[in-house]
Amino acid sequence: MSDPAGVLADLRAESEELDLLVRGLSEERWAAATPAPGWTVAHQIAHLAWTDAAALLAATDPGAFAVEVEKALAAPDRFVDEGAEEGAALAPGVLLARWRDGRERLHRVLREAAPGTRFPWYGPPMSAGSLATARLMETWAHGQDVADALGVVRAPTARLRHVAWIGLRARDYAYLVRGLTPPAAPFRLELTAPEGVADGALGDAVWSFGPEDAPQLVTGPALDFCLLVTQRVHRADTALVAQGADAEEWLGIAQAFAGPAGQGRPPQGAGS
């Protein structure tokens, strides 16, 4: 992540793919319910615009961002929803323009950041490359909610490798945010790349992260892992396999995003 150019290009591609889904939607479709309780398509895009604005503030005015962090700490169960509500109340065209402008300004700031610069965040401080990866992860995850609401099946891309990487990097945070002690030993991931991705320049058939001799191992489809660490699917509805008690425990609490511990999604068929 010393050179963020590659992940910034992938972030732009991920954003443009989601932009294609929502541009031209009717007001009725902007108001369509997504799998996140109480959130419409508009809420999902508003959240991305709000988080891009927060990232831009962190990168350009750390003092002002620290004030926003204090506000978040004072209302941990409300601040995310309140930000989404404010943006979702805008006219779709205004909201779309706000999201486009904010993500472009953030892209320029991260692209021009001096090597070694670290920015404050709601979790641990991040380099420009890591912050761009976090924005890609959120864009993909909230884009999944939008796609589900619109009945669109998205083809997985090689950009999921970034989501998997940050999912593993956030392992300790998932424990700490729940008041738990992270395991001391490193974990390893061996994830099967999505069909059609592992050919030629697009990547290997298996994406591996972590030491080869790590005592805890997670294997399975990369898409399942990315859906799990963004809490878009329940652990029971994946084909992931954990080797080791610590790895199994982690898959029950994993989250790739900063902020309070997520509630995740219920297993398919729950309550039916």
Rank of each mutant, 00 (worst) to 15 (best):
P4R: 00
E16Q: 13
E16W: 09
E16T: 15
E17H: 09
L21M: 14
V22D: 01
R29Y: 03
W30T: 05
A42I: 05
I45N: 01
L48W: 01
A49T: 10
A53N: 07
A66Y: 09
A66G: 08
A66K: 00
V67E: 13
E68Y: 11
V80D: 14
D81W: 04
E82P: 01
A84T: 06
G87S: 07
A91T: 14
R98D: 14
R100E: 12
E104K: 05
E104C: 05
E112Q: 12
A114D: 15
R118A: 14
P120E: 14
P120D: 14
W121A: 15
W121M: 06
Y122Q: 04
T133W: 00
H142C: 09
G143T: 08
L150R: 02
G151F: 03
G151N: 11
G151I: 02
G151A: 10
V152M: 02
R154D: 01
A155L: 11
A158H: 13
R159V: 14
L160C: 07
L160S: 06
L160G: 11
R161V: 15
V163A: 14
A170C: 04
R171H: 06
D172Y: 04
V177F: 05
A184H: 10
F187N: 08
E190W: 04
E190H: 05
T192I: 15
E195T: 14
E195I: 10
E195H: 00
A198D: 13
G200F: 07
A201P: 15
A201V: 12
G203P: 15
A205C: 03
V206H: 03
S208F: 07
A214E: 13
D224S: 12
F225K: 01
D237H: 05
A242T: 11
Q243N: 12
A245K: 07
A245R: 09
L251C: 13
F257N: 04
P266C: 03
A270T: 11
G271A: 10
G271W: 00
G271E: 06
S272Q: 08
